[in-house]
Every structure is written in C-alpha cells, then in structure tokens.
Computed example of a mutant assay.
Amino acid sequence: MIRHFAATLMALAVVTATPAEATPSRIPAADREVVFTADGTTVYGTLHVPERRAGQRLRAALLLPGSGPTDRDGNQPPGSAPDTLTQLADALDEDGIASLRFDKYGTGRTGLGAYQDHPEELDYPAFIRQAQTAYKTLREQPETDPRELLVVGHSEGAMTGLILGSTVHPRPSGLALLQPQAIRLLDLVTLQLKDQIAEATRQGQLTPEQQRTVNAAIDAAVNSLREHRPVDTTDLLPAIAELFESFQGPNARFVDSDDAVYPPDTAAALRPGTKVLLTCGTNDAQVPCATTNALTAALRRADAGGPGRVTLPGVDHLLHDADSPDTLASPVVDALRRFARH
C-alpha cells in the first residue's frame, strides 16, 4: 500500500512538472516607439516585436521606405496611405522576425530636424547615415539577435539597403530589395517620363513629332543637370518642366547625390554569401523588371546568396495586385517567406 502510494506521488509529480517545463511563459507581440539621434536630428520609429519566449533574442529587420516624403508606415499623407511598411512588418511577424521602421527626414514626427532652416542642404548621404544609425539602434534592442539582422528596403529604400549591406557592422545576414531603384536616379526618371509620353502619344494626346521633341528635351534636361548647367524647359510639357525645375532648385543636392549612385557597382562590396532577395513586379510601371537586369548580374558576380531575383506576376510598385489592391499581394508574401526561411 505504501509502495503504491509513493508510486502515485511520483507519477503526480511527473505529470505536474512536465507542463511547466514544456510551456514556458510567452510574451505577446507588441509595438513600441523607439527614438534615436542621427546628425543632430531626433528620429522617431516603431519597433515591432513578435510573440516570443521570455529572454528570447529574435531575428530582426530594418525596414526602409521608398522615395519622397514616405513615413515609417510607408505612407505619404494625406494623399497616399498604402501602409507598405506596416504590412511588411506584419508579414515578417509571421516568421517571428522583429522589425524597426522610422520616420525619415521630412516625414512624420521626425520632420526636417537639423535641416529645418536649410532644407536645400539635405542630400542622399544624410538619408544613408540616418538608416545606418537606425540599424545600430535595432542591433542594440534587448529583443534582437545582433548576429541575425536583415535589411528590407522598398524602391529607393532598397538602394539604401544595398549600401547598408556593405557599410554597417555586423554585416546584415540578408537583404530584401523590393522593387528596387536599380539604376541611376535620372536614368530611371527618364525611362518613366518617356513611357508616359509614349502612352500619351498612343492615346492621341501628342503627335509622334511632339513625342520626339519632348523626349529630346528630357535627354537635354538630364544632361544639363549632370553637368550642373541650367535646364532649358522650353520644349518640355508643363508638368515635366516643373519637375526639372524642382530638381535644380531646393532638391538639387539630393538629386545630384542620389544620381551619383549606380547600384550594380554598390553590389560588388557585399560580403560573399549574403542572402539577397530582389523582386520585380510585372505591373510595376515605376521600376520595370528590365531595370534590375544589371543589378541582378552584379549580385551574381558578387557571389550573393539566394533566393535572388523573383518576378512577381501582376504585382505593381506598391506590392499590390488585382486580388489584393490594399494589402501585400500573395506573391510578395511568398517571396518574403522564402527569403526569411532560406
């Protein structure tokens, strides 16, 4: 009887102890504001941390927005609110990856910061330094594993991420270049404008002769910008003339310094074996797949790891398709998951 009672106690002890060991405490997913300083400017961001075990260090990704006044969520209020970066953070959460996104210069709570009184001095290297400081901030968070850091950039942010890939420490274990700016800025602008002019000609809004005249004026304007000469807007359509006037006005330093970067050259400095995802969407009019050819080849020469370039059928520049006009298209999510698990 005593032996039976003792055996029963032992069995109860085992049954009682096992669940406590098998189900450690979990901390729910949460967002918190993160503040850091870059070049004298206070920068505000959001750190998203997925559900995790107490004390667990997670893989973590720095999220970088596209061009223009795009804030930490991937929006340009009030006119555009696709929530691109918020949705990327949610997608990465599904694979247990934390993320940091921030309001870059000219957006959100950060604003122009130290450049408030002289915005014309804001150049592209300032955005690179801001992103490098954000990467360091992510590395130092108590929930992140500094050995497993990723950079996920969209459009211009992908080009910035490519630069970070060879300039930050520790080097990122992976880069996701989503619909990247993969050629020089003014070459990309030229391509986009000429496509719009061609479409206007197809619709009968311009004659073929007018198309040739405007295209030649665009080429001349780009040459003038690169040679730091005044742009002649005589043969440009009003909207295009206004664009080039802004390029040689307050935005001149930024345009000149951004245009100086040729992403395929930047790829050569990556650490061999760095895993890289490069996406292009077949419905992306802003960054056509053909513009990523040279960068794709450069990544191969640099011995970058996979998954490499992934073509996204029916996906546009904002990572949407006809089935998902307001959320990340399923091919985008699939590509991210493949990247996260590669």
Rank of each mutant, 00 (worst) to 15 (best):
E242I: 10
F247W: 06
T84P: 03
D235L: 03
D83E: 10
R52T: 03
H342A: 10
S155N: 04
L237M: 06
T37W: 08
T70G: 11
A126N: 05
V35L: 08
K136E: 11
A329T: 14
E209I: 14
E143R: 04
A221Y: 05
E199R: 14
D117V: 13
R301F: 06
L237H: 03
I240P: 04
F254C: 00
A297M: 08
H320Q: 07
G66V: 15
I97F: 10
T144L: 01
A269H: 12
F247S: 05
P28T: 03
Q205Y: 14
L278E: 05
Y124A: 00
L299A: 02
H342P: 04
D83S: 12
V35K: 07
S173L: 12
R129S: 02
G157R: 04
Q76S: 04
L186H: 01
T107Q: 09
R337P: 14
T291V: 04
T41F: 11
R337E: 15
T266Q: 11
G79M: 12
G273W: 11
A22T: 15
S257E: 00
S330C: 13
L178Q: 05
N283H: 13
V214D: 15
L206M: 10
I2F: 14
A6L: 13
A38G: 02
G161E: 00
P125Y: 02
A298R: 06
A89W: 10
G96D: 09
A6W: 11
Y135E: 08
P325H: 05
A216T: 10
L47T: 01
L62S: 03
G113T: 05
D265N: 06
E242F: 10
M10D: 13
A22H: 14
R338Y: 04
E148M: 09
A89E: 13
L62V: 04
L270E: 00
R129W: 02
H169T: 07
D187K: 13
T292H: 11
D265C: 04
L186W: 01
A298I: 06
A340M: 01
A29M: 05
G314C: 03
